[in-house]
Every structure is written in structure tokens, then in C-alpha cells.
Write a protein that binds this DNA or RNA. Structure first.
Lengths: 341, 341
DNA sequence: CTCAACGATGTTACCGGTAACATTGGCGAG
DNA sequence: CTCGCCAATGTTACCGGTAACATCGTTGAG
């Protein structure tokens, strides 16, 4: 019947147009700018759409208009305890406005990130979201000439070009010292994660070191050799608390390490915070379930996703905004005081 | 220079073709079937691609070939403690084969699921993955005539049409009873979650009830009124263990409930498993960090993602397979014995 | 030596929408 | 009554690829 090349077998604008007795562009307008189509035609088209179960082909629309309704996001990992919230809220806000999320994981590898960005760009996404400010040179080149809104989340690097939506890891480190110092502790140690790649964690360490120095205290950084976070935590507790001059408080690079360390201590008969204050980062789901519950800092994970989505929608003109779109979005972390410190 | 309509400004096949002195279809073949292009042209094209930073436009390719390289997935929620692993492994396997993942959350609502499916179909995905076997009538209609591979994960419903990749929730319920019964417990209670929508959890409850009855024991189901899982757990522990004839063992619908219950008990001075065995489901990340650590059943979350992706790739002819593609894929759960039961 | 078969490459049209411009009819101002 | 403007709708071509078929030069069997 039709040409030699068969499509998907689904109804097209042309089918709808024919059935409704209008031209295809009118059907297109019915979806994109309903207000310019007269009431009478709107009704006829609506009926035809209903009858044919018509669904607009997004690939075709995106190709023709050169404005695809896809937003791409590279995240270190989906299943980690923190980033999931960012993805969730980001995706929800986008979906609500008819955009779809394309997702890939970098596992903290800048090479994997670059691969993902390259693959994404083939889809002509409307915008691109990256995690952290640390990328490969290739990624930098790609995003520089992508010509779409770019958002960097999680970190906060005011000097960089892409939109920033995140928080200051440096400040987190300082805040932890501040809190523990206020509690009277002086020998405050920091346990780094040995996981290569999570460069933001090093910023927290640097904040810790800076604040310690300012207070006239000597920084004391422990770097575990174990890769498994729970093992690494155990290692740290053993080393820091089982010595002549034990640490009075231990700041861990994240809640996993903190939980591992605390658990090892508890099983060895220690008690917290009596035998040492334990301080985490991340406010993972389990942190309030531990006994003692874990004092930690909650990063604005959900908020990051929401704000990032909002800024993108604004940049795309989908959401009204008066004035400039803020280039810098510094969100607040929340120190959650519980029992362990 | 060119027509009145400007594209994305990026290099196209035609640009590459002109630079390499070949026709555009040859460039297309260079990417799709490199072996039919002669070595000489391959080199010339490779150079042109390099020079122009050419990236194939996936939307155009998908439109022309009617085979898009997108796979869509609807999941109850991204940030939950279980599904993230499925998404992660699913996405990784797909990415490795050049497919991209389109993601949306249903929050256990069949209406939201239907909306997501409708939105997805506009992208002509190569395949569609749903969670659980429970859908709206609209969703059933949509997937019936979608004409692409459909996979249902998480549940296992052999009688249904879509490919099944999951495990038997009924069996999980039975398995828990089996284990506790073997430990000598007779008064075994089940704590349901009050979260409307997670219908699979009810299958676990039904398995529990069936096995109890088979053993000549009386099922004892507690339905919390609290929505918050930790609060609900507390409520359950209070009701089940603080009575004249307390339960000897409590099976919780998931680890969140179990952790909430156990924590409430511990804070009230109880000890586990002495004052009651605690049994969860899900093997959430924190379960081994609790004190006592939580006995639970690990669902094959990661495996589900991997197998689902593999079956899809086979159905699409991307991965070799001899014989039929198995319609049923029943994966094993793992009972993880720890300290709480 | 002839011709069919085959490998390598090109031509044309089409996938399903939409931008840009054209057309039509109704209405109010002059 | 004529003209100009505007709102509603249509025509045409194009977005960037690829399916289908055509073409051309080689090669090997008969």
C-alpha cells in the first residue's frame, strides 16, 4: 500500500491528519501550541488521536525541531547510598515537564565519564548534568562545544563555567572540626577513604586540615589500606583508638567508614561516644538506626536534583524566571547531631 | 549557505562524506558494518570523522532504521535500597552494548506507571522493562501492541506473556517460616508493610500464611497503622512481644521494618534473638551493620538487572544465543543467617 | 572468451515530524 | 467599497540518517 519502506506500524501525524480532515502541521500544532488551533479542529483532532491511539514519535520531533526532550546525567554510581536521591528528584521534576532522563554511571572514573558523555551527545540532549568538577580533558572539550546547558552538581566550584549546583566539601570538613572542637575535643583525626576517584572526599579532608590548623591543632589523617569500607573503618579504629595517646574524636570520610569503624569498636567492647566520638558524612539511611545512632552531616542530595532540574528547565525556557538564571547555587548541608558524637 | 533551516551545527554524515570523498551511505556503513567497506575508504573516513569531531545523531539514525538504541525501564523508586542495584547492573550491561537507559519511577502506582510507559513509547524504545506483574488495564493494552520485547522483573508469574526475570515472593515467605520453624519457633508472626501499592510484599505474606498452615501453625499477621517503616516496626514489636503470649519470632516484610522494630526493642531493653527472633527481607546495606546483625533474605537484585539486560540483547540479536530465548528466568534468593534469628 | 556472480560503492527516497513561508477568509478603518 | 491586517490553516522542504535498489569493475567457471 504505502512505500517500500515500512515504519513502526504505529499511527503517524499524517494518519491522524487524514482522519481528522486537516493537514499534518495542524496536528503538530494541536500538540505544541493548542491555542492557535480553532476549537472545532481541536475536537476533531482529539477524536482522531483517540481512535488511532496516536503517540507522537519523539525521535522524529526532536530531529525536525533540533530540540530533543532528553536530558542526560552522568553519576558516579546509581546504587550508592547518596546519589540515588539526587537522581530520583531530578528525574521526577524533569518527567513532570515532559523530559526524559538518560542515565549512565562513571564509577568515579573520568574515562568512563567521557565515554558516557560522548554517547549521550549522540542523542542531542537538551542539557547535560555531570557530577563533580573533575573531568578528563576530553570531557572538557566535549562540553565546551556542546552548545547546551551544562550543570555540575555535588561540588561547588564558582570559578568554573558550567552552572554549579552543590555544596562546599571544604566547608563540610571545617564544620565537623568546628562541632567536635566545640565539644571539647582536641585530638581529632580524619579517616580518608582509600577509594581512588572520589576526589570530592579529598576536599572534605582539606577543609578538615585547614580548620584544624587555624585552631592551632595538629591534623591527623589516617589512610586505610583496605578497600572495603567496613574493613577500612575497622582498621582506622584499631589504629586511632588503641594507642597510648588515642584520638578523642574521629571524622570519617563517609558514613560507611564510620559505621564499619564503630561496629568494630563495639564488638571489641568499646563504647561510643565515651571511648571516642564518631563523626560521619552522608546521613545514609542506616545512620539513625545504629546504636548509638551516628552523628553526621546530611548533604543536600535531593535538593541538588531539584535545583539542577529547575535551572535546566529555566534555561530551556520551560519555566518562567525573572532575571538571570543564577550561575551559582550553593546549597546547605545539615549537621545531624545524634548519639555517637 | 545551506538551506533556510539550521540544524544543530554539528557535523553530519554528509560533511564527513564530502571531506572523505565518498558518499554518505558509505560513512553510514563505516559505522554499522565496517567489514563491507574497503580498507582504503575506512582510513579516509576515520580521518574525516576525527577531523570533524563527528558524532552520529542517534535520533536520526533511529528514525531512519526504526530501531532505536534506547531501552526504557519503569521502577517503583530509584532511591529505594533494593531497586538501585537492579538499575545499576541493567544499565551497565546495556551501555556496554551501545544502548541507553531511559528511566522513570512509578512509586508503586499503576497510574504513574502507565504514564511513564506512554511517554516511553514515544521514543520507540527497543525494549521495555517493568517491575512486577501488576499493571493497569491501560498499561496492559499498551504493552500488548507495542511490538517490542517486554520484560517483567522482580516478580515471577509464569502464566504471563512478557518475559519473566525474577523470583518467587511466595517462596520467600515459605522459606522464612521454614527456617524459623527449624529453629524450634512455633509462634511466628508476620509484619506486613502498610505501604499501599507494594503488591509483591503481599505475596510474601501469602507464602508465609500457606507454609504456616501446612505446618499446622496458626498464621499471625500484624498490619501496622503507621506509614513510616521505622515507626511501624516499633509498633509491631510493641504489639507482638509485649503480651502474655508473645511471638517467638517475627518476620518483617522488609529490612526497614525489621530494623525499626529491633531498634525499638533494643532501646526498650530487649535483647535479640533471646527475646524474639527477628527476620527481615531485602538484605539492605545496613543489615549487616546492626548489632545484632539482621538475618534476612537477599533478593537477586543485581542478577535481575543483568539477566533482564541479557535477554533483551538476545531478543534484539545483539548477543548470540543458541535455541529459544528462555521465557522464564527464576532466580534464587539467598537466606543470610546472621545474629538476629 | 563470455557471462554470471559477487564485492564495493552510489542514488534515491523515505522514516515522522516541524520551521518557514504562503494562502485564505473575515473584519474594521478610512 | 477597498485595503490592510490578523488569525487560522496549508504547502513545501528539510532535520540527519539508512533501507532498498542500482551500478560498476572483478573474478572464476564453463
Amino acid at each position: 500500500m504505502s512505500g517500500k519502506r515500512k515504519g513502526l506500524g504505529r499511527a503517524t501525524v499524517h494518519d491522524v491528519a487524514k482522519l481528522a480532515g486537516v493537514s499534518s502541521i495542524t496536528v503538530s500544532r494541536y500538540f505544541k501550541q493548542p491555542d492557535v488551533v480553532s476549537e472545532a479542529l481541536r475536537l476533531r483532532i482529539a477524536e482522531a488521536v483517540q481512535t488511532l491511539d496516536y503517540l507522537p514519535n519523539q525521535a522524529a520531533g526532536g530531529l525536525a525541531s533540533t530540540r530533543g526532550r532528553i536530558v542526560a546525567m552522568v553519576i558516579p554510581n546509581i546504587s550508592g547510598p547518596i546519589f540515588a536521591n539526587t537522581i530520583q528528584s531530578f528525574s521526577d521534576v524533569l518527567n513532570r515537564h515532559g523530559y526524559q532522563l538518560l542515565l549512565a554511571s562513571s564509577y568515579f572514573s573520568v574515562e568512563k565519564e567521557e565515554d558516557a558523555v560522548r554517547a549521550f551527545l549522540g542523542w542531542s540532549p537538551a542539557a547535560l548534568v555531570l557530577t563533580s568538577q573533575y573531568h578528563s580533558a576530553g570531557t572538557e572539550r566535549l562540553i565546551a562545544k556542546a552548545g547546551i546547558p551544562i550543570v555540575e552538581t555535588w561540588d561547588y566550584a564558582p570559578e568554573r563555567q558550567p552552572l554549579q549546583v552543590g555544596f562546599s566539601h571544604l566547608e563540610v570538613g571545617r564544620q565537623a572540626v568546628e562541632y567536635l572542637h566545640g565539644k571539647g575535643h582536641r585530638r581529632i583525626a580524619f579517616v580518608q577513604n582509600s577509594l581512588v576517584g572520589d576526589l570530592s572526599a579529598l576536599d572534605r579532608r582539606d577543609g578538615y586540615m585547614a580548620r584544624m590548623t587555624e585552631q592551632g591543632l595538629e591534623p591527623w589523617v589516617f589512610v586505610p589500606t583496605e578497600a572495603d569500607p567496613f574493613e577500612a573503618g575497622r582498621q582506622a579504629i584499631n589504629s586511632l583508638l588503641q594507642r597510648k595517646q588515642p584520638a578523642e574524636a574521629v571524622i570519617f570520610a563517609n558514613d560507611n567508614l564510620a559505621a564499619g569503624g564503630m561496629l568494630a569498636g563495639l564488638r571489641a567492647g568499646m563504647r561510643f561516644p565515651q571511648d571516642g566520638a564518631i563523626f560521619g558524612f552522608g546521613n545514609y539511611a542506616f545512620s539513625e538506626l545504629l546504636l548509638p545512632s551516628l552523628t553526621t552531616i546530611r548533604p543536600p542530595a535531593r535538593e541538588i536534583g531539584e535545583v539542577a532540574a529547575l535551572r535546566i528547565l529555566q534555561a530551556l525556557g520551560e519555566v518562567e524566571i525573572e532575571g538571570e538564571i543564577p550561575h551559582l547555587n550553593l546549597l546547605d548541608c545539615e549537621l545531624i547531631q545524634r548519639e555517637s558524637a
